[in-house]
């Protein structure tokens, strides 16, 4: 297990008349090497949950262990935690701040107090990993890059910390179709190289169906279910309770099922539906 969360509850503005419960007895074990999607409608507790994973929010009640780092400890090692769990916020390009791409990407590793040499090597590697040319962009201002490039630089800044777990809050929001495909491919590549465990918060059910191993479904501050997409999208009662919309492929498959078509494997990916139908016709 890479991250174990038990009985996690969180109340915003606790002890005031404006107190609002954001998480209630949330428990989940995030497996090393998995691609987990955190889903649920706006206000369901997704963002509050992931911000706990690298202690951006202080634990109020419950337990969180990230590998061997215990967040319930009196003084958890936050520096090591933040080197372990890399957090890419929503619209991360708004958080770029330094004069050059190189300096911006170096900010994280510098805070890890690594030697100069190591920092330079990591920055170069991270910039190349996100698909930018180090020599071309290192001295440029991050602000003169295109939207998609800025987002890559912001991700490079997190990757340069070599986190074992990469957490991304709506990484494709606001991008055009090509930008979306590129960022999803980049996350795949990072999962295979630097960060084997990936957690994304997403409203894009098509992307979740295509890429993720499991989904954690949030509703009203609770986790309703943690399961592979196939077991989530075909669970009608769950989908209704979480007020979620199924991906198009699943809607087509459900419409086919209601017309008497049966499937060996309930499809959630585009190619799965096509394959099932081709095989069925061949029989």
């Amino acid at each position: 297990m890479s991250i174990v969360v038990k009985d996690l509850s969180y109340v915003y503005s606790q002890g005031t008349p404006y107190a609002q419960t954001a998480l209630e007895n949330v428990g989940i074990e995030i497996r090393e090497g998995e691609y987990l999607a955190v889903v649920g409608k706006t206000g369901s507790g997704k963002s509050t949950f992931i911000q706990h994973l690298n202690a951006l929010i202080k634990l109020q009640s419950g337990e969180i262990r990230v590998f061997d780092i215990d967040l319930t400890a009196k003084k958890p090692d936050l520096r090591r935690l933040r080197g372990t769990v890399g957090m890419v916020m929503q619209y991360p390009e708004y958080q770029l701040f330094d004069e050059t791409v190189e300096k911006d990407v170096a900010f994280g590793p510098k805070n890890l107090a690594l030697p100069e040499e190591e920092i330079r090597a990591r920055v170069k590697e991270a910039i190349e990993l996100v698909g930018l040319k180090y020599d071309e962009v290192k001295d440029r201002s991050p602000f003169e890059l295109s939207g998609g490039q800025k987002r890559r630089v912001a991700i490079a800044g997190v990757i340069a910390m070599k986190p074992r777990v990469l957490v991304l809050d709506e990484p494709t929001a606001g991008l055009d179709p090509l930008g979306k495909r590129e960022i999803l491919a980049l996350i795949r590549r990072l999962k295979e190289t630097t960060s084997p465990t990936v957690v994304i918060v997403s409203h894009d059910m098509e992307a979740v169906a295509e890429h993720c191993d499991r989904m954690a479904v949030f509703s009203g501050g609770k986790i309703l279910k943690v399961a592979p997409p196939r077991e989530v999208f075909y669970d009608e009662a769950l989908m209704r309770e979480a007020e979620m919309d199924a991906p198009s492929v699943v809607k087509v498959a459900k419409a086919l099922i209601s017309r008497g078509v049966s499937f060996h494997n309930l499809p959630v990916k585009k190619e799965e539906l096509v394959k099932e139908l081709v095989e069925r016709r061949g029989r």
């Binding site: 098509e206 991906p247 198009s248 087509v252 419409a255 139908l277």
Partner: peptide
């Protein structure tokens, strides 16, 4: 859009699906 992508892929596989824009229900039909 996904239903139209699926329609195009199925056409490639020889399914006689007409060239038009589909919603999910229409595609299933």
């Amino acid at each position: 859009p996904v239903p139209d992508y699926l329609a195009a892929e199925l056409r490639k596989e020889g399914f006689p699906i007409p060239e038009k824009i589909f919603g999910e229900e229409e595609l299933a039909e």
